[in-house]
Write a protein that binds this DNA or RNA. Sequence first.
DNA 1: AATATTTAAGAGTATTTTGTCTTTTATAAA
DNA 2: TTTATAAAAGACAAAATACTCTTAAATATT
Lengths: 145, 145
Amino acid sequence: MRVISKSGEYGLRALLHMASNQENEGFFNIREMSEELDISFHFLTKILQVLTQKGILQSYRGPNGGVGFLKSPEEITLSELVRALEGDDFFDKCLLGLPGCGERQPCPMHAYWMGIRNNLKSEFETTSLADLGKNTRLQHLRLIA
Amino acid sequence: MRVISKSGEYGLRALLHMASNQENEGFFNIREMSEELDISFHFLTKILQVLTQKGILQSYRGPNGGVGFLKSPEEITLSELVRALEGDDFFDKCLLGLPGCGERQPCPMHAYWMGIRNNLKSEFETTSLADLGKNTRLQHLRLIA
DNA sequence: AATATTTAAGAGTATTTTGTCTTTTATAAA
DNA sequence: TTTATAAAAGACAAAATACTCTTAAATATT
Ligand code: SF4
Ligand code: SF4
């Protein structure tokens, strides 16, 4: 049950890293981040590119360039991040994946799943990137091979 | 957020179909099922093979052969089905996918996610295949193109 | 202006998942 | 015992996802 895709995970790890080191620097060098987080540089670049395109990050090319937040991590919700990283329909899917989800003819899991889903949704909407990083230690973000 | 993989979904749809037509026949012809459920015959065969290997179904080759339940749908839990179809670690994954999930250094989502996960787990353990089929209509299982 | 640095963009490769096709094995019936 | 039927098994193909490499564009420094 991989709720978040690999690229989504990488994106979150990078953002979490940025949020927890925000006091030090304004722009983050992607190469450095990729090394510290043990994520392929080019792959991470791609992922951060979409976050830039979606208006969550800003980027700067050239010497001392990098990516930085447009809003503060306190104002970025986990909800908008997974929507950006996993697609806008992230919270619309069925648990079992059965097609034609129906309020009309729901299976016995339907009400239960809708409950969990709405719960998840509101939890994600009220959790900020800053919240997420609060108790997170760096070793948690790195691969513990 | 595809919680259940495509092949897992196909497996569930087939089992649901069998459970809701159980009174009629003992063994189900895979070809017929694949046509009724609009699932590739060979792909479905593969999926049902693993269910047979895992001891959830029994199969019979030759004329009038097919697959049938070993236990009654009332005795088959959704939990054992997703474990068979999606892997035994289905209920062990992290929400965000971050590696090295830690009770020691949990992120703020950890306790929340553990709650949902255990909830899901016990719900899946107490929901039988028969339960699942109760309000399910056939058109729900078919593709509503 | 020339050069170095760094992200953007896009092509290309690898792996996994999904789906197809062919051959083999088991069973029933003629 | 021969033939037909249906699942098992395995090779193969397509699509999606994950990852790599090359080139282009932007910016800073000299
Ligand atoms: S009714 Fe059940 S199977 Fe259908 S969409 Fe809702 S939860 Fe999924
Ligand atoms: S602490 Fe958070 S990120 Fe880590 S495994 Fe638990 S839920 Fe996932």
